[in-house]
Every structure is written in structure tokens, then in C-alpha cells.
Lab assay of single mutants.
Amino acid sequence: NKFNKELQWATWEILNLPNLNEEQVKAFIDSLKDDPSQSANLLAEAKKLNDAQA
């Protein structure tokens, strides 16, 4: 289903952001699991944090 694909993509993207630490990655992944419908928003937040920590 649509959410599953978005969830998988967002998870992969977050796991490959170079500037997030392990705790941050885990928090984002946990949030994705809690509410897959928010995957696009969570991914945007993760990318923002990644850029801020570059």
C-alpha cells in the first residue's frame, strides 16, 4: 500500500543521512513506525536537522 512504500522510502532516506547521530535516527524511525502517515513530514524534519548539523 501507499503508506508502506512511503514508510520504506523515508526509513531508507533517514538511515542514510550522514549528520544524524544514532539516537536521532532511532527517534525518527520510531516516530515513523508510530505514525506512517507522517512519513513525508518526518523525512523533511530529519533532512532539516541533518542540514543544520552539517
Rank of each mutant, 00 (worst) to 15 (best):
K47P: 00
E45H: 05
S37M: 07
K26G: 05
A46E: 00
A27Q: 09
K33S: 10
L17H: 02
I14L: 12
L43M: 05
S39Y: 15
N4G: 14
N41H: 13
K47D: 02
P36G: 03
L15Q: 13
N4M: 09
D30K: 11
A54K: 10
A54F: 07
L49W: 04
P36R: 02
E6S: 04
I14R: 00
V25Q: 13
E13P: 03
N19W: 12
V25R: 14
L17Y: 05
E13R: 05
E6M: 14
N21V: 06
L43I: 11
P36N: 04
D30P: 00
Q53P: 03
A10T: 09
N21P: 02
K48F: 10
A27L: 12
D34R: 13
N50L: 01
L43D: 00
K2R: 11
A10N: 04
A40T: 09
K2N: 15
L20T: 00
E23W: 12
Q53F: 06
L15K: 08
F28V: 03
A54Y: 06
L7F: 06
T11I: 11
L32S: 01
S39L: 14
S31H: 10
K26P: 00
L20S: 00
K47G: 04
Q24G: 00
D34T: 11
Q24M: 04
E6A: 06
L20W: 00
E6L: 14
A44P: 02
W9K: 13
P18T: 12
N4Y: 14
Q8V: 06
N16A: 11
Q38R: 10
I14Q: 01
L7T: 04
I14M: 04
K33E: 10
A27D: 08
N1T: 04
E23S: 10
T11F: 11
E23H: 08
S37D: 06
Q24Y: 02
L49E: 03
Q8L: 14
N16Y: 04
A44T: 13
A46I: 02
E23G: 10
A52L: 14
K2G: 15
Q53Y: 07
S39D: 02
L15I: 08
Q24T: 03
K33T: 11
W12H: 13
D51Q: 09
A10S: 03
F28S: 01
D35M: 08
D35E: 06
N21R: 12
L15T: 13
K48E: 09
P36H: 03
I29G: 01
E22Q: 14
A52G: 05
K26M: 11
D34Y: 10
Q53L: 08
S31V: 08
K33L: 15
F3S: 15
L32I: 04
L43F: 05
K5I: 04
K47T: 07
D34E: 08
N1Y: 00
F3T: 15
N1L: 02
E6G: 04
N50H: 02
Q38I: 06
D51L: 08
L49F: 04
P18G: 07
L42R: 06
N50Q: 02
D30G: 12
L42H: 04
N19I: 01
L32P: 00
K5A: 09
W12E: 15
L32N: 00
F3D: 15
K2A: 15
E45D: 10
D30V: 08
K48R: 12
K33G: 10
A10D: 02
A27W: 13
A40M: 15
N21Q: 07
E6D: 10
Q24K: 01
Q38E: 07
A46K: 00
A40G: 10
F3Y: 10
K33D: 05
N21A: 08
L49H: 03
N41M: 12
I29A: 03
A54R: 10
A40P: 07
N1D: 15
Q53S: 05
E22T: 12
E6N: 04
A44D: 08
A46W: 02
D30S: 12
N41S: 11
W12R: 06
E23D: 09
K26D: 06
V25K: 15
K2Q: 15
N50D: 05
N41E: 09
K48Y: 07
F28P: 00
L20I: 04
Q8I: 14
L20R: 00
A27I: 08
A27G: 14
D35V: 04
Q53E: 05
S39P: 03
D35A: 07
A54D: 13
A40S: 11
L42M: 09
L15N: 10
E22D: 14
L32Y: 01
F28N: 00
K5N: 15
A52V: 09
W9H: 13
A10R: 03
N41D: 12
D51H: 09
N50P: 00
K47L: 06
E6P: 03
Q38A: 10
L42I: 12
Q53R: 06
K47S: 06
D30T: 10
K5P: 15
Q8K: 06
K48P: 00
E13D: 03
L32H: 00
L7H: 02
V25S: 12
L43Q: 02
N21G: 08
N41T: 13
S37L: 07
S39R: 05
K47Y: 12
S37W: 09
S31E: 08
A52P: 02
Q8D: 04
A52S: 11
W12K: 08
D51Y: 08
N4F: 13
F28I: 04
D34N: 13
L17A: 02
K5W: 05
K48T: 07
N41Q: 11
S31L: 14
E13Q: 12
L17S: 02
N41Y: 07
A10P: 03
